[in-house]
Design a protein around this nucleic acid. Structure first.
Lengths: 234, 234
DNA sequence: ACCTGAACACCGTTCAAGT
DNA sequence: ACCTGAACACCGTTCAAGT
C-alpha cells in the first residue's frame, strides 16, 4: 500500500473522471456500465470514493457525462450530399462510434433526458431532412421511426416521460440552440401541445407509422423477388 | 410483529413468486424491475429472503421467469388473414400486452437469451411470413428489421452474444419445438454457420437492411406528398 | 431433512470529525 | 476551507447453526 504514482498528478478534473469512467466501462471484461461503481472508479483513479462527488453530483450524472463524452465523438456529417445519403452516412458514422462503447446504448436508453451532444446530433440529422425538402411533419415521424438507429443502435431513444418539461425561458434557450428540434416539436401534427423535446407525441401513431413503413418495404421487396445474395443492398 | 395472515397459506409455488414479482414491478410508483429486490419481494410475500431461493436460482432467473410470464399473456393470432395484416395484428397485440408491464422491454433487452414464451411468439410470426410466401432469407432479415417491435417495443431483442450456443442434442430439440426459427437460422444467407437461435448473423448487414428499408419508405412517402393529417395511416 | 438468522462482500451516499 | 474515514441503509447470496 505505497502511495505510488507520485503525489497529486492532476487534481482530478471532471473530464479526467469521465474519461476514466468510459475507459473502465469499455474494458473490464464486457461488464460495461453495470460493472462500474463509484467505489471501483475511485480506486482506479487512486482517490477515495467521496472525491468523485466533487466532480459529479452522483452516479446518474456520471453516466450522463459518459454518454455525452461518447456521443460527442461522432464525426461531423460529410457536406453537400443528397439528403438520404447524408442521413445514411451520419447514422452509420454514429454506429461506428457507439460500437466502440458497447455499453452506451443501454445507458442512453435509461437516461431520463437526452444529453446536449445527443441533441446536437439529432438537430443536425433533422436539418439534413429539412434541407432535403421533407416537411417538418414527415421529418418528425421519420425521426421517431429511425429511433435509436439515429445513434447507431436499435432502441427507443428515450421513452416519453410525463416529466415537468422546461419552463418558458429554458424552452426559448433550447429553441435557440436546437432550432430544427424546436421546429418539429412545434409542429402541430399531433394534437397535444408539443413541449420542446420529446414530449407530447402520440406513441401509438409513431409505432404504427414505423411498423407500416417496415412492413410495406418488406412486402415491396418480396414482390420484387428480393434476395440477399443479389448484392441488392443499396 | 404478529404472524398475521394465517400460518402458511400456500407453500409458495414458483408461480406465486413470479406473479408477486410481476405485480410488484407493475406497481410501486414506476420503479419497475430496478425497484424489485429479492429482499423486498420476500417481505411482500411474508417470507424470509432465503425462502425465494427455493423457487428461483437467483435474481436473474427471477427476471427471466417474469418475462416469460408476461410474454405468455400475448393473445394468439387471428386466423387466416393476409400475412401482412396478420403480422401487424400480432405485433400490435404484443404491444398491448407489454404496455401493461412497462418495465418488461428493458428487462427483455438485458436477457442473455430469449425465453421459451418469446421463442413461441417469434416462431409464430416467422410462420406467418413463411405461409405468406416470403423466402426464409427475406423473412430472416424482416425479423431483424422489426426487432423488438415484434414484441411491441422498439429495441434490439437481444444483442448477438458469442456465447457457447446449444450442443447438437439441444439444437435438435429446439428445432423440433421451433421449426420456423430453425429454418431461418439454417438459411445460409449469411456466410457464417447459423446456430439454432440468434447467433451467427452479420449485424452490420442487418442494420443497413433495416435502415435502408426505412429511408426508402420515407423517401417514397415524401415524393408522394404524404402528410399525417391525410388519414393516410394504413 | 428442512428452514432461517446471521454474516459476507458489496453498493451509493451522508456527515461529522480531522487536518 | 478542504478533504476523508467511518457510518448508514441498502443489496444478492452463502453458510452454518438451530429445529
Amino acid at each position: 500500500m505505497t502511495e505510488g504514482e507520485g503525489t497529486r498528478r492532476t487534481p482530478l478534473n471532471r473530464e479526467r473522471v469521465l474519461r476514466a469512467a468510459v475507459a473502465f466501462a469499455d474494458g473490464e471484461g464486457g461488464g460495461g456500465a453495470d460493472a462500474l461503481s463509484m467505489r471501483k472508479l475511485a480506486q482506479e483513479l487512486g482517490v477515495v470514493p467521496m472525491a468523485l462527488y466533487k466532480h459529479v453530483a452522483n452516479r446518474e450524472e456520471l453516466l450522463t457525462g459518459m454518454v455525452d463524452t461518447v456521443v460527442g465523438e461522432i464525426a461531423p456529417p460529410a457536406p453537400g450530399a443528397h439528403w438520404k445519403g447524408a442521413v445514411r452516412d451520419r447514422v452509420l458514422s454514429a454506429r461506428r462510434t457507439l460500437r466502440r462503447h458497447p455499453w452506451a446504448p443501454r445507458v442512453i436508453e435509461a437516461l431520463p433526458a437526452p444529453t446536449p451532444a445527443m441533441l446536437d446530433h439529432l438537430d443536425a440529422v433533422i436539418g439534413l431532412f429539412r434541407s432535403g425538402g421533407l416537411s417538418a411533419d414527415l421529418t418528425h415521424h421519420a425521426m421517431h421511426a429511425l429511433g435509436g438507429r439515429l445513434l447507431g443502435f436499435t432502441q427507443e431513444l428515450f421513452t416519453a416521460s410525463p416529466g415537468p418539461g422546461p419552463d418558458a425561458g429554458a424552452a426559448a434557450q433550447l429553441a435557440a440552440r436546437y432550432p430544427h428540434i424546436a421546429e418539429i416539436a412545434a409542429t402541430a401534427a399531433h394534437a397535444k401541445d408539443g413541449s420542446a423535446v420529446g414530449g407530447g407525441c402520440d406513441d401509438q401513431f409513431e409505432f404504427e407509422f414505423a411498423l407500416d413503413v417496415l412492413l410495406d418495404g418488406i412486402e415491396r421487396l418480396h414482390r420484387a423477388g428480393w434476395t440477399s445474395a443479389a448484392g441488392d443492398r443499396r
